[in-house]
Design a protein around this nucleic acid. Structure first.
Lengths: 168, 168
DNA sequence: CTGGTAATGTCAACAAGGCTGACATAAAAT
DNA sequence: ATTTTATGTCAGCCTTGTTGACATTACCAG
C-alpha cells in the first residue's frame, strides 16, 4: 500500500480519516451538551424548556417575524410551536400583533419581560461561547464557523446566512 | 468612545463581539440539526431514536464498556438508559456479558447485527462530516475541534480526551 | 460471617416536546 | 365566488428525559 500520508496531488488528507471524523462527531455531541447546559439550568427553574428558549431567541433576533417564518427557522410543526408560543403569550413574554398589510399574519415581539429573560438566557450562553472563542483564538473561531456552515443542510445554510446578513 | 477594533494590547477582539457570539450560537443550532439529520432518517424506519444511536455509537467505540461507564458518557439516568438498552438487547443488537473479575458489572458489546446498524448509521453521519471537513480544509477543521473542546464542560472534556486517546 | 456499599435492573408516574390528522376561521388571491 | 394561505386548536401518540422506591447480587471491610 502506498504512503497514506499523501494523496496523488501531494496534499495531506489525514484530517479525513475515519478516526478524525469520529472524533469530530463526538466533539459535536459533547460540545452541544455544554452549549445548552447553562440556559437549560435557568429554564428549568421557570418550567420552561429548550423549545421556549429557541422561540425567544429567534423572536429577539428577528422582531416582528411571522409565525410561518419562525416555523421555517425552527423546523418543527405548527402544533409544536403553537404550544410553546401560547404559553409565552399567556405569560406575557411574547406579544402577537395582527399584520398590517396582511391581516392573516401574526407578527411576534418580545415584551419587556420577554426581553429580560432573553438577555438572561443569552448572557449565559454567550458567556460560554465567549470563553471558548477566547481560549481558541480568532483563527480557530473562523474554522469553527466554516465547518459548522458546511455541515448544515443547504436550506438551513441559506436561513443562517439570511439571519446573519439581516443584522449588518 | 475609543476604537472598538483593537484593545489596549493591540490585538483585534472583533471575533468576541456579541454579534459574532450570536452567530456562533446560531451556527451550532443549525449545524447540529444537520449533524443528526441523516442518522435520524435511518432510525425512524426502525422505530429507534437518537438515544439508541448514542448507545450503539459508544458501545461500538468502547466495546466491553460497563453500564456505569456508559451512564457517565451519556449523562442520562440509569432508568432512561436501561429502557433503551433493554430493547437493543431484546432485538439482538447488543450483548450484555457478566463481568469476569467483578460479577456485578455488565459488559456491553454489539452483536453482528448491532455492528451492521452501527456501520450504517455512522457511514451516514461520517459522510456529512467528511464532506464538511473536505470543504472547509484541515486548518478550519483544527479550529473547529479546538472551539468545540473549549465549549465542553470540564468533565466531558476529560471523557472526550480519554475516548480519543483510547484509540491510538 | 455480617453489615454496608456498589452495580444493575425494574416498576410506576410524570413532563417536555416532537409527531400526525382533522377541523375551524379569517383574509387574501384568483 | 371559490380557492388558497396563515393561523389556531383539539386529540392522541411516541420518544426520551426525570424522580422515587425497591430488589438482587456481589464485593468489601471489620
Amino acid at each position: 500500500m502506498a504512503d497514506t500520508r499523501a494523496n496523488i496531488s501531494g496534499e495531506s488528507l489525514l484530517f479525513l480519516t475515519d478516526e478524525q471524523l469520529r472524533q469530530g462527531i463526538e466533539a459535536m455531541f459533547f460540545a452541544y451538551r455544554g452549549f445548552t447546559a447553562d440556559p437549560d439550568r435557568i429554564l428549568s427553574d421557570l418550567s420552561y424548556g429548550r423549545a421556549h428558549h429557541r422561540a425567544i431567541h429567534f423572536i429577539n433576533r428577528a422582531p416582528g417575524t411571522t409565525v410561518n417564518n419562525l416555523l421555517n427557522i425552527l423546523g418543527v410543526t405548527k402544533q409544536s410551536l403553537n404550544r410553546v408560543l401560547r404559553t409565552l403569550v399567556e405569560d406575557g413574554l411574547v406579544e402577537s400583533r395582527v399584520g398590517q398589510s396582511d391581516k392573516r399574519e401574526r407578527h411576534l415581539f418580545l415584551t419587556e419581560a420577554g426581553g429580560e429573560l432573553e438577555r438572561e438566557l443569552s448572557d449565559a450562553q454567550r458567556a460560554r461561547m465567549r470563553s471558548a472563542f477566547r481560549d481558541a483564538g480568532p483563527d480557530a473561531v473562523a474554522g469553527f464557523r466554516t465547518v459548522l456552515e458546511a455541515m448544515m443542510d443547504a436550506e438551513m445554510q441559506r436561513t443562517y446566512t439570511r439571519l446573519k446578513e439581516s443584522s449588518l
